[in-house]
Amino acid sequence: MIKCENILKKYSDRTVLSIPQLEIKSGESVCLTGANGSGKSTLLKIIAGVIPFEGKLEAQGSILYMPQKSLCFDMSVLSNVTYSLSGKKKDKEEIAFEALKKVGLEALYKKNASGLSGGEAARLSLARLLVHECDILLLDEPTGAVDIEGTEIIENAVKSFVKENKCTLITATHSPLQAKRMSDRVIMLEKGEKVEDSSPEELLIAPKTDFGKKFVDMWRY
């Protein structure tokens, strides 16, 4: 369970995020959406605990987080995945290779990760997380730079991971279709404030904002 109370994030004097109340239950799959600069990444960073903030946050359990600008380490693709594992080298490599298969990168396992394309890098970043277990999975635009096929691969890998781990999932995305496929709850931010928070079905019937209307229009056609 994740509980936010009076969360406030300021950069110098500018408030970029202000969430008076937000609760996400264990096992929920949530999509976080909103225009550029609306505060999606900021909220994820706060929950992941990578930036300081004002207010109260309760996040129970272990967290895995993939930043929007997730970096591939300057080492082989396989080592990127094994680096965060512990244990015997051979075991680690077996686990890592399995994860690479899940995201379709097994053929590139020897390649240096700094030479990967944007979409490949995103898939590697995901594979790096998938070898662990967690209670909360935070993904910041995991398919931002990924082609159609890659998007499908990533979504499926995430879905089966979430099912296996019974973990809470929060995905930041710009894609209404992805939001529909991946989540049972859509949270929309505007200028750092929560303006929509409902199931896709409810949002479809009664969007409160212009952005919300445009968003659900994408589901109709």
Binding site: P67, S70, S84, H132
Partner: peptide
């Protein structure tokens, strides 16, 4: 970015420091 990525993977302090050196070797 590197430290956010490392935090996201819950790397230990030691492994993170080592990563900083190795990544930038």
């Amino acid at each position: 970015h590197l430290s956010e990525t490392a935090r996201g993977l819950s790397l230990s302090k030691g492994k993170t420091l080592l990563l900083f050196v190795f990544h930038n070797r």
